[in-house]
């Protein structure tokens, strides 16, 4: 039996990247060398496994929408970075939408309500108004925002344990 080829040569043989005399010598060698035959068998098996794993995962994917995405990307050269698009799409996922809206309301509410707590705006008669929304500014203070007739809004009272006052 001839000397065993090194693993690089076995790899080239298994990949069909070896020709001529060297290929014939290795082909002859593996007929009588179980170790090298096993080595080549494992390389071939590995190739099959990798190929089938990736194909199985990708062949059934519906890529019908890819062209539309590409055509949009081509039409807007500035929209080239996919990472930015992914980030944008994240914003429009339903859960993210709700969280984003809640954040806007919370921050906006704080900016609007806080100065109002200390303002002395025009007095609005309760009989002419209806409750628009209720904010729990802190555990001791509940703020009711009143939508007055004619669409004008104002805070008309601040109420909480031990504290009730009209604005």
């Amino acid at each position: 039996m001839t000397k065993c080829p090194n693993r690089e040569d076995l790899q080239r043989f298994a990949d069909g990247e070896m020709k001529g005399g060297r290929r014939s010598r290795i082909a002859e060698h593996i007929k009588s060398c179980e170790l090298c035959a096993d080595d080549i068998g494992q390389l071939q098996r590995l190739s099959e496994l990798i190929s089938s794993a990736i194909r199985k995962e990708t062949e059934s994917r519906d890529l019908a929408g890819l062209w539309e995405k590409v055509s949009v990307g081509i039409a807007s050269p500035s929209v080239g970075a996919t990472s930015r698009q992914s980030l944008l799409s994240l914003f429009w996922k339903p859960a993210a939408k709700v969280a984003y809206a809640a954040l806007v309301v919370l921050v906006g509410g704080l900016f609007v309500v806080r100065p109002m707590l200390y303002s002395t705006g025009p007095r609005v008669t309760i009989s002419r108004a209806k409750v628009y929304s209720v904010y729990q500014y802190d555990p001791d203070v509940t703020v009711s925002m009143i939508m007055a007739t004619g669409g004008q809004s104002d805070i008309v009272w601040i109420s909480g344990p031990g504290r009730t006052e009209e604005n």
Binding site: I54, L63, L66, G73, Q85
Partner: peptide, 30 residues
């Protein structure tokens, strides 16, 4: 597209990433 997607998935192992990569590849190609 299937071949590009397959390679992109083989390297990224994530379908959304593979789709993003495929999109970027074809825009670059264009």
């Amino acid at each position: 597209q299937q071949k590009v997607y397959g390679i992109a998935y083989g390297i990224s192992h994530d379908h959304q990433d593979a789709l993003d990569i495929s999109q970027e590849v074809f825009i670059k190609i264009y």
